[in-house]
Design a protein around this nucleic acid. Structure first.
Lengths: 202, 202
DNA sequence: TGCAATTTTGCAGTGACTGCACGTTGGGCG
DNA sequence: CGCCCAACGTGCAGTCACTGCAAAATTGCA
């Protein structure tokens, strides 16, 4: 599996249009949330701004939240693949640090979409429940990948899930720290958090 | 603040009736979820079984989820108080282990209600998003308490939030491990998880 | 060009949740 | 004891997220 499925253009008109519609809905959702706040936006508005019917919105996203903060199946696959691929001298927790920080960094695939998603994420505490809900999917995908990397049967060992859950919790704590106007910038806080975890919280 | 606000009966009829209604709604919700699964239960049914109107349900709980897994303000206060009270030679993470394990142990206040809540929690993966959403409230309460215990201004330091978030994540990971039919029982897994965190995940 | 698969869309419906106005009930106070 | 106020319960009307269904439009392919 290639990691650049998102930029893949070597396919028919049908597939391209679907990508365009999805992206239009995504951007429309981000637009509106930035303008009016998440709770004041309706799915009808999002669909309308994206130029599709209200019903079509739900052909692309299972919920309003998903259009704003949802992680696509392709992204999940990409993260899982990154975790499975072992680098020299990189521990699992180190790989997780790199991958999770990368999710928030606008340097990857879709710069505009991710930059705006990040800004909204940090600015709207009301999205916190949806955010942690979405994290469950990420956690499951990464846990399965780590189990494969370690060569253990799915669900047999506790350790992989603990490792992934703790890593995600650390990043999320940094996000909430930002939301509450805490000190430092996100990147250095994430670094500090992982350093603290590596030492042990005893 | 006393920790036994929940068993307080030294108040008027009004207050007692409110407690009874709340409890009736709680038990009705647990009943129905056990019978039919969370998504198949409606708030009207819950209200009806508890003997109140559909509208009244929402005077007691802000959402259907809250009636099943919601943590009351009193419980939050109690947890926060437990964390602030320093015991000899007990580290913050040790106190968190004790408190979070206590939340799942049916030995505390309301045995019946908590036993059933725990069983449902472990048996219904579809409640996972609501569960993590509820955890945010617990996390905020415990973070504030830890900040007070450490004598730092709210939101100024990253460490308290990291500590609490990681501890909660560890417990939640153990719950999900159980949900997926993982090995071991919940208590010993939680012990193992905290031991692992104390050592450091480097 | 025409057929088949896929996608879009409208429609009708369910259920969570809210604001409002009104009736009821408990509690304090004269 | 009775009265009044505040708190509580309730019905109603409404909004909005979300779903299944079937018809209409669109696309890929032979």
């Amino acid at each position: 599996m290639s990691t650049d499925l998102l930029t893949d253009e070597a396919c028919g008109l049908r597939e391209r249009k679907k990508r365009e519609t999805r992206r239009a809905l995504n951007l429309a959702a981000l637009d509106l949330v930035e303008e009016k706040g998440f709770s004041a936006v309706t799915t009808e508005e999002i669909a309308s701004r994206a130029g599709v019917s209200a019903r079509t919105f739900f052909n692309y996203f299972p919920s309003k939240e998903a259009a704003v903060i949802g992680t696509t199946a392709e992204e999940l696959e990409s993260y899982a693949a990154q975790l499975e691929e072992v680098r020299d001298g990189e521990s699992p927790i180190g790989a997780l640090r790199r991958i999770l920080a990368g999710m928030l960094a606008p340097a990857s695939f879709d710069r505009e979409l991710r930059t705006r998603r990040r800004r909204i994420l940090l600015g709207e505490p009301s999205l916190a429940p949806a955010l942690v809900g979405n994290n469950i999917r990420i956690e499951n995908a990464l846990t399965a990948a780590l189990e494969r990397r370690l060569g253990v049967a799915p669900g047999s060992a506790l350790e992989p899930r603990i490792t992934v859950a703790v890593a995600i919790a650390a990043v999320r704590a940094c996000i909430e720290h930002q939301q509450n106007g805490g000190s430092g910038d996100l990147e250095s806080n994430i670094d500090a958090a992982f350093a603290r975890i590596a030492i042990g919280l005893g």
